[in-house]
């Protein structure tokens, strides 16, 4: 079934057992993002030491795609250099707009590569991007 390409096993696993849920404190940057078309909400917090993400947590309500995306993102950036995130962000945004025509780079994206199927459902691209954009804002806030 084509639907299985959207809801890959990895995505449903992250949805059921999300990583990095529950906001940590103190933190350096925070962002709250809402998908106005559906009401999905996510809050992302980040702590930085030099250029390294020492912690990233999130909380919110939303569909399996947006919740799983936040969980995957936690795994990707936790204890990692900021450069890794910005490279992955560019890659992920490109993947989301590829309409299924780009193969994901698992070395750069980790579990986020499983979201490749989302790009074939334009209405769901925003769900997948929501936590990524929130983290981007949280990091910018932390550096200010």
């Amino acid at each position: 079934m084509q639907l299985d390409s959207l809801y890959q096993e990895i995505i449903l696993d992250h949805y059921k057992n999300p990583h990095g849920v529950g906001l940590h404190a103190p933190f350096d940057g925070e962002a709250f993002h809402v998908n106005t078309s559906c009401g999905d909400e996510v809050t992302v917090r980040v702590s930085l030491v030099d250029q390294v993400v020492t912690n990233m947590t999130h909380d919110g309500v939303g569909c399996s795609i947006s919740r799983a995306s936040a969980s995957v993102l936690h795994d990707l950036v936790f204890k990692e250099n900021l450069e890794k995130f910005s490279l992955a962000l560019d890659n992920f945004v490109e993947l989301m707009h590829s309409k299924g025509k780009t193969a994901p780079d698992e070395n750069i994206l980790g579990d986020a590569a499983a979201f490749v199927g989302v790009s074939q459902y334009p209405a769901r691209v925003k769900c997948a991007l929501l936590p990524w954009m929130a983290l981007k804002d949280a990091i910018e806030g932390a550096r200010r």
């Binding site: 569909c63 399996s64 795609i65 769901r124």
Partner: peptide, 13 residues
Amino acid sequence: QVHPHDVSQYLDS
């Protein structure tokens, strides 16, 4: 435990 947009996506399929 299933978000309405996941519900509608499933039914759409």
